[in-house]
Amino acid sequence: MGNIIVLVEHRRGEIRDITFEMLMKGKKLSESTGRPLNAILFGNNVGGMAEQLRSRAKRVVLIEDQKLENFNSETYQQALRNVIEGEKPFLLLIGHTAFGMDLAPSLAALLNAPLATDCIDVMVEDNRIKAIRQPYGGKVNVEVCLKPAEQSMVTVRPASFSVEEYSLDGEIIRVSSPVTGESASKRFVEYVEAAAGELDITQAPILVSVGRGIKGPENIPVVQELADSLGAVLSCSRPVVDKKWLPKDRQVGTSGKTVKPKVYIAIGISGAFQHAAGMKGSGTIIAINRDSKAPIFNIAQYGIVGDLFKIVPALKGKIKEAFG
């Protein structure tokens, strides 16, 4: 019977959260299907990580090789292809992250394995794998069924599964590296850190955050004035930075900053998961959006449905009166 396998994601010496989230889901699937759960760990000098993972999976397959030190989808693909021949996974879970997005689609094509990407849930019913995806910016859920196959793959959206306490006494299985040569067609060169911005939005107790709903740079003062009236800092979603309406150091989300202010006011932001991941931990979230179905209302505690260009000025006026 094929295994359930979680591909461990780590970067610069740290196991990434997505790994533990996938192991949590993998454990539940393993219990409901009776299929063993294995973690596969590739890297260089990552014995410590294997020890750490031993409490979260029954078997940790460890492959160490200097050529696996930094992520390279081609080297990983070569290594995985070999390991998988022995492991015969029924289901391989990989994160829908910068790492998994570079690896999973081409690996699936190579293995001729069905793949469902960016899934928020995975089910196994009568040996059929089903998954829930969330297309259209999170406005609908779609249940997909993977074609029956010996091995299948699912990439998992970060923060889809909450990690519970449990502790296993798993074994570490060392496998010699199947990587023969360095990939010549794709080479890892280096990491480049983002330039430190002028402003640190992570320190602000109150954030007024603006999204594409603001329409254009000429309207930024509308929200800036609201922020000023509250002594808050102005942050934003990614499109606002992409369009150069605000600088990069203001961006909240997976590719920006993770913030946890006491109050986060999201204005004209739909609540895509990459944005939500960066602000879900805020104390209180207030969302202003004219679309009552916007996903942001599922994570906010308070919502105002309406046109921001009417609501924000009214709010600003009252606040000036109240706190002026």
Binding site: N72, A98, V189, E190, Y191, E193, A194, G256, K257
Partner: peptide, 8 residues
């Protein structure tokens, strides 16, 4: 993630 780039 988090503002880090990888050069390839």
């Amino acid at each position: 993630e988090g503002g880090l780039d990888e050069v390839v």
